[in-house]
């Protein structure tokens, strides 16, 4: 085990652990935000640069500071490393800059975006964004496209985290979408008109940190915070059948995987509980599910948490015993 100090808190982790995962082991508000890293997807991370932290001392043997900020999601810790995240003004400033970069070409369509309320970029903007944009140029725009009859792609909103690409590579047997072009013209696309159609392809919706990939079967345009999330399970031959069903009254509006506070699909019995497309898109009838109880939405998000509490206050309190 190696010892690391992050924002003055010491933690012991396995050698080879990344700074971000060491921080997650400590938990709380010293955990850097991660827009592209996704612990369940091999190779993810390093791209968005929101998780930048300052390394004030490289290791016990070489205590020199690292000259540049490093991406905490892809930098392994050393014994005796000292990391500053929220205690560093430099980190704060540069994270604000990264946030600004992510937002300059992002449309201001939160009011009509399905992801509003559970969008990681919205959270990031809330915590690190500037009040006014300094961007006077034309935003780049793409037309929304259907990737089959179940998934919609709003490329305008994409932050090119590549999570959906890794998901398709690692969860499905044939990837049919990817990144076309390059630079600020890079876009997620199938290139030819093609449905992403595979038992597990719907998971691209769950991993997308923003509203770029959304569920077309989401029955009703509703703000997520008006829905009541319930943990539910079903007998499924393709997946573990452990999901969250989002209800309005007695109706299921949508089905998603069970996400933890970092927005990642939870492990259940030691396996990541990705759900299959049948569970996600087709089981919209309450009788198909065994409801286990309300789902506590435990995201760090200021925006979403307030909303859910307003909706679910009593029940979630009961559930967590507080």
């Amino acid at each position: 085990m190696v010892k690391v100090i992050i924002d003055d808190i010491e933690v012991e982790v396995e050698p080879g652990t990344t700074i971000l995962n060491a921080a997650r082991k400590i938990g709380g508000d010293i955990v850097p935000p991660a827009m592209c890293y996704y612990s369940k997807l091999q190779g993810s991370g390093g791209k968005c640069r929101t998780c930048l932290v300052e390394v004030a001392a490289g290791s016990a043997t070489d205590p020199r500071p690292m000259p540049k900020l490093v991406a905490s999601c892809s930098t392994p810790v050393n014994d005796g490393m000292v990391v500053k995240n929220k205690t560093s003004q430099r980190v704060y400033d540069n994270r604000a800059a990264v946030t600004e970069f992510l937002l300059i070409n992002h449309p201001l369509d939160c009011p009509v975006c399905d992801q509003a309320g559970e969008c990681h970029l919205q959270d990031l903007g809330f915590e690190h964004g500037k009040e006014r944009t300094r961007y006077e140029e034309k935003r780049r725009t793409f037309d929304p496209i259907d990737i089959g009859d179940k998934i919609k792609l709003h490329m305008n909103r994409c932050i090119l985290c590549y999570r959906c690409v890794y998901t398709a590579n690692q969860l499905t047997d044939q990837r049919v979408h990817g990144v076309m072009h390059r630079g600020d013209h890079a876009e997620i696309s199938t290139y030819i008109e093609k449905a992403i159609d595979n038992d597990f392809s719907g998971n691209v919706i769950d991993v997308c940190p923003v509203g770029a990939l959304t569920d077309k079967t989401f029955r009703f345009k509703s703000r997520v915070w008006f829905l009541k999330p319930m943990e539910a399970s079903c007998e499924c031959t393709k997946c573990a059948g452990k999901a969250v069903i989002w209800m309005f009254g007695d109706e299921i509006y949508r089905v998603t995987g069970r996400k933890d506070k970092y927005g990642e699909i939870e492990d259940i019995d030691g396996k990541t509980a990705w759900i299959c497309n049948e569970c996600r898109f087709d089981k919209k009838d309450k009788s198909m599910w065994k409801i286990e109880g309300p789902r506590v939405i435990n995201r760090h998000s200021v925006i979403s948490q307030n909303q859910y509490i307003a909706d679910d206050q009593i029940e979630s309190k009961k559930l967590t015993g507080k």
Binding site: K47, F101, L160, G183, D184, A186
Partner: peptide, 22 residues
């Protein structure tokens, strides 16, 4: 540089394009 950015990381993808436009 904006033309040659691979577009992988946000500061370069967005920043080079922004500088070019300004």
């Amino acid at each position: 540089y904006a033309h040659e950015s691979c577009g992988q990381c946000s500061p370069c993808r967005e920043g080079t394009g922004w500088m070019e436009k300004v």
